[in-house]
């Protein structure tokens, strides 16, 4: 069939598609933001509940009874302590609250932390290609809020990757710019095409005895088993 014949045949595609293409308007960014805010609000509640559940489960199953997954006790808070100081630390550090943008639900990641490097394998579980960048930040859970972990300057490759449906890709994130990590719950805010975006969160934990527990491909902490 000649190209022009096929072009001619296309003349008879369904009227509704012709009208759809004539009237199509992309949803405005403002609309997206509103939707994202609504989703974010719901997600914050879910993450909060999940974090509490996770912490309680890990205390029972993975951590020796004499230890706790918590930061070293701080000196009692005094009236001189600045309002932004986060209680529960040996040093009063002003942590910047992380933004509350929810991560994509179209990706699963397994996380393994070794030698101050987090190896994150992303698996695209959607039907569409997923594009992502290499920018990342480290966040720590304090109370029920996520905060950015301060860091030295570090270099990120300004690259975009794309993985097809059902395929995966592994990136390694250097954690050394963040210095010593106290025991606690962490997540790498990653996948962004610049530093302002949080596209996906890769979770891991550091226990009191300095062991890093990553996330297995199902999204649960490594070694986690369902309570019977």
């Amino acid at each position: 069939m000649r190209q022009i014949d096929f072009f001619e045949v296309l003349e008879n595609i369904d009227d509704k598609y012709i009208e759809e293409a004539a009237t199509y308007k992309k949803v405005s960014k403002l609309g997206n933001v509103r939707t994202l805010l609504a989703v974010a609000a719901s997600l914050i509640v879910v993450i909060g509940v999940a974090a509490i559940f996770l912490r309680l489960s890990l205390k029972e199953k993975l951590v020796p009874p004499t230890t706790t997954i918590a930061f070293t006790e701080a000196e009692p808070e005094t009236s001189e302590t600045p309002a932004t100081t986060v209680p529960g630390f040996t040093e009063a550090i002003n942590y910047e609250p992380a933004n509350d943008i929810p991560g994509t639900q179209f990706v699963l990641a397994s996380v393994r932390v070794e030698d101050n490097k987090a190896k994150v394998t992303f698996t695209n579980i959607s039907d569409e290609p997923w594009s992502f960048g290499e920018y990342y930040k480290l966040e720590v859970l304090i109370g029920n809020k996520w905060y950015y972990v301060p860091s030295e300057d570090y270099i990120v490759h300004d690259l975009m990757h794309e993985i097809g449906p059902g395929t995966d890709y592994t990136l390694t994130y250097d954690l050394s710019p963040f210095g010593y990590l106290a025991p606690g719950d962490y997540r790498i805010s990653c996948g962004g095409l610049d530093f302002t975006t949080n596209v996906y969160y890769a979770f891991f934990i550091k226990t009191d005895d300095g062991v890093f527990i990553g996330t297995d491909p199902t999204g649960y902490p490594e070694g986690y088993t369902e309570a019977t």
Binding site: I4, F7, E8, E11, N12, D15, K16, I18, E19, A22
Partner: peptide, 17 residues
């Protein structure tokens, strides 16, 4: 025609082709 814009668009496209 039920969708006039598609109807008239098809005619224009056919004549132009």
């Amino acid at each position: 025609p039920s969708i006039f814009s598609a109807f008239i668009g098809k005619i224009t496209r056919n004549i132009s082709l």
